[in-house]
Design a binder for these strands. Structure first.
Length: 409
DNA sequence: TCTGGGGTCCTAGGACCC
DNA sequence: TCTGGGGTCCTAGGACCC
């Protein structure tokens, strides 16, 4: 009888990632206080309506501060809270440094998010020892060389490894092998299970499921009829079933690119909204060209002053990566969708991507298309060489709107 | 001096075709 | 003079993740 080869998967998760990385950076530039050791958060600015907590220190957590709450409310819980503004470039490079170390331990490392990765450790025992020993080595190396701590979860598949890394923090290695599911995972609240969010947890409560164990032992046919595919998936997770593989390729090519922003004031004029959309189109299209993709679908998202969200999308006749072309479509979509009420937030997202070298030039407007393309190339080149603000559209001069809105990487 | 921004995937419903 | 029914494509919205 053939022996079934068991996989060994690790999930590596940076503890309070943004805050840890901010702390390491501050120590490096000579600050004496480690913000991890005092009540502190990484968060935006309330004056520009970006005031929410993105990450918190452990001392801040002791005051009851939670991720996602407003800075205003966090300050009410702790008056001398330190607030560090977010620095996305720092987080990107910190995440990359960690990936480099991980890649020394396996050829199969999947970057799952800016601060999380899966590592396939199957057949690697010979090189670095048994999984627990290796995980400690990795964890301690990251701490020593990069200055921040991680949790590592170990199991036979991705979901169990991910659940394991979420056990007690920080700076810990945990296992959650199939034999440990009953004792370590089933007592947890069902909302702690990967892919069970607030809405599903509430629906589960209604039929008497409150722990992961309750879900695992529930009649699968009832789950299937009430919760469809997602229900079946989380039921399998609760029973430790997951056959996804660790894939190192996904992270770079995205299926869509989008940027959005909450504007510092409510927009009531169509012209101002168009200007914001242009500034967003600039970054979305630069990212699109950067990853050598062309978009087939453009979507505009509006959030009004009452936080009501709606969106409108359209398929293009032919794929494009041109700022002017995508902006033109976005403007039309906005005009069709906008109900005229004050706007808090605007976004553009493009999808249905194809390789920009492959796509067919539309036969109409070929000259215009070529001119736009040349313009985009020139602007991208100048911005790469001299900085993103080296060249700016004239309409943004003396405007309250920034000429480029949204992250570029 | 309330409530971010970047993603993926799924589903429901309508249009349209045979 | 009761209401077909697959299949596909498209859009809007919502759930979830970080």
């Amino acid at each position: 009888m053939e022996e079934i080869k068991k996989q060994t998967i690790m999930h590596i998760d940076v503890n309070s990632a943004y805050l840890s990385w901010e702390a390491v950076f501050r120590l490096k530039i000579g600050e004496t206080v480690d913000i991890r050791e005092i009540p502190s958060v990484v968060g935006g600015n309330s004056a520009t309506r970006h005031g929410i907590v993105l990450a918190k220190s452990i001392p801040a957590k002791k005051y009851g501060i939670i991720t996602g709450e407003t800075i205003h409310s966090a300050l009410k819980k702790c008056r001398n809270l330190i607030i560090a503004p977010p620095n996305h470039d720092l987080y990107l490079s910190s995440g990359r440094s960690m990936m480099k170390i991980l890649e020394e331990y396996s050829p199969f490392v999947e970057r799952y998010s800016i601060d999380e990765a899966f590592l396939d450790y199957t057949h690697m025992d010979y090189h670095f020892g048994d999984p627990v020993t290796a995980a400690h080595k990795i964890k301690d190396r990251i701490k020593k060389e990069l200055g921040f701590t991680v949790n590592i979860g170990i199991s036979t598949n991705k979901v169990l490894a991910k659940m394991a890394s979420d056990f007690s923090k920080p700076d810990q290695v945990h296992t959650l092998y199939p034999g440990e599911i009953k004792s370590k995972m089933w007592p947890l609240p069902v909302g702690d299970l990967f892919m069970v969010g607030k809405a599903t947890a509430t629906d589960f409560q209604k039929i008497g499921i409150s722990t992961i164990g309750d879900l695992a032992n529930y009649d699968i046919d009832v789950i299937r009829s009430k919760f469809r595919r997602n229900g079946v998936m989380v039921w399998e997770f609760a029973n430790g079933i997951d056959d996804c593989v660790v894939s190192s390729e996904d992270y770079l090519k995205s299926k869509g690119v989008g940027n959005s922003t909450t504007i510092a004031f409510d927009v009531t004029e169509r012209k101002i909204a168009h200007k914001v959309l242009l500034a967003i189109a600039e970054t979305v299209c630069m990212r699109l060209r950067d990853q050598k993709s062309a978009a087939g679908v453009v979507s505009v998202e509006i959030k009004n002053k009452d936080f009501i969200k709606y969106s409108h999308q359209a398929k293009l006749c032919s794929n494009t990566d041109c700022t002017n072309e995508i902006f033109k479509t976005a403007k039309t979509l906005f005009d069709e969708a906008w109900k005229g009420e004050p706007i808090r937030h605007l976004g553009i997202r493009v999808s249905d991507l194809c390789d920009s070298n492959v796509y067919q030039k539309s036969l109409f407007d070929e000259k215009l298309h070529d001119r736009n393309k040349a313009l985009d190339n020139t602007i991208d080149h100048l911005r790469r060489r001299y900085g993103t603000n080296s060249i700016v559209r004239a309409c943004f001069i003396k405007s309250q709107i920034k000429p480029l809105i949204g992250r570029l990487n």
